[in-house]
Design a protein around this nucleic acid. Structure first.
Lengths: 218, 218
DNA sequence: GGAATAGTGTCTCTAAGACAATATGGA
DNA sequence: TCCATATTGTCTTAGAGACACTATTCC
């Protein structure tokens, strides 16, 4: 029917979260060849009978690794080529998920993104592309808010931006801008005494529309 | 070996250009089933022996429809599902190309994007996603410059932005911003008498790095 | 010279950056 | 009370928007 062989097709999910002030990626140790014993991104095949599209498949993979609530999820891009998988010509559809740490089960393998090297297949590259995407988004969207637990203080959110972009925003400009564009909304309960020292801070959460874009820096 | 059937995998290219002041998409009439006789995006299978990745395949498709010089080319996203192709579960990797009109051969089918409806497969959706991507890019990058012939005047470029985004930029702010960020560079030869009326304008072209991003509107 | 378009100057206003001043909760 | 952090206020400055004014080309 078709003149050309169909490549191997998979989905892979880059699950990013914030732990100990640094961006981490969730990895799993492969239990099968190829690359058995090596760290890799969670992923798998499309289940053509049950997945209505590739995003469904990626959501299924994600759900097996983290609670799928409060999650920012998007397509990253495809990676393809004859050599990335020793079994033959392959294509993977990579997805990016931003998850607060507490949604990730105990015992999951979280690796600082800077240390995510030597992974199976071309997963080093995929992680790199995901981190790059998140970095870019952090200058024109509230994406870093998806990495932390809700509700959060503006200080928490500022720290998330700092961890992603490498520079801490000016507190005054940050507050002004974030609140002006409505990128976060006040949570019902107001804070009081979280970390036990200093004045308590007001609590916020992402609005129902989730991560928002706006066109300026702070 | 694999428990799950491999979906049909294709690449499709959304080739956008600017003609008569409006954004157009290049379409072809399908000569085979499914959808024989219907307009569709140019596309095809991956040639696993010659294409080093999906982008190679998309470039090959593009080269068969337009001269592949001075072209802005990027991955758009994947589209997938069991029903988009009557032959079975399928995935397409969609690419976006921005091409100046004169690089497109005579006789090609250019359709205003607003009229690109009733296309084969789910190509309506793909065109929509491509146009949306370009619209977004036009507020923080020089992408519309890739739609017009080089060298161009700032008036030409302003018209390209207007055609994509729907609003004409303020001439003064536009000039200031575009030149300040170096999004275009002066072409060697200075203009003089193109359209035969009014003062001649200076000519510019995209810098070697191609389309640039910058983080403000004008 | 006049029409038409290109390019410059400048004023206003918004918003970012910096930082001082004040408020509030916990020890 | 003091300390630490949160929040507000204000001054400065860069840059966008608007628009008037000058420059250059073709007729």
């Amino acid at each position: 029917m078709e003149k050309y062989q169909r490549p191997i097709l998979t989905v892979d999910v880059v699950i990013l979260t914030l732990t100990k002030g640094a961006l981490h990626v969730l990895l799993t140790e492969r239990d099968k060849e190829p690359f058995a014993g090596t760290l890799a991104l969670p992923g798998g095949y499309l289940h053509v009978e049950e997945d209505m599209d590739a995003e469904d498949a990626a959501t299924r993979v994600l759900a097996s690794k983290a609670n799928a609530r409060n999650i920012h999820f998007e397509q990253l891009r495809s990676f393809s080529g004859p050599y990335r998988d020793p079994r033959g010509y392959s294509v993977t559809l990579a997805y990016l998920a931003l998850v607060p740490e507490h949604e990730i089960p105990e015992g999951a393998r979280l690796v600082p993104v800077a240390d995510a090297k030597g992974l199976a297949f071309d997963h080093d590259r995929i992680v790199e592309a995901a981190v790059e995407r998140l970095r870019r988004k952090s200058v024109y969207s509230s994406a870093p808010a998806a990495l932390i637990a809700s509700p959060f203080t503006l200080a928490d959110l500022s720290n998330a931006f700092a961890a992603v972009s490498g520079v801490a925003p000016d507190p005054s400009s940050f507050r002004r801008k974030i609140l002006a564009v409505g990128a976060v909304v006040p949570s019902g309960e107001s804070s009081r005494g979280g970390r036990g020292i200093g004045r308590g801070a007001a609590l916020y959460r992402l609005p129902d529309c989730g991560v928002m874009t706006f066109n300026r820096t702070f």
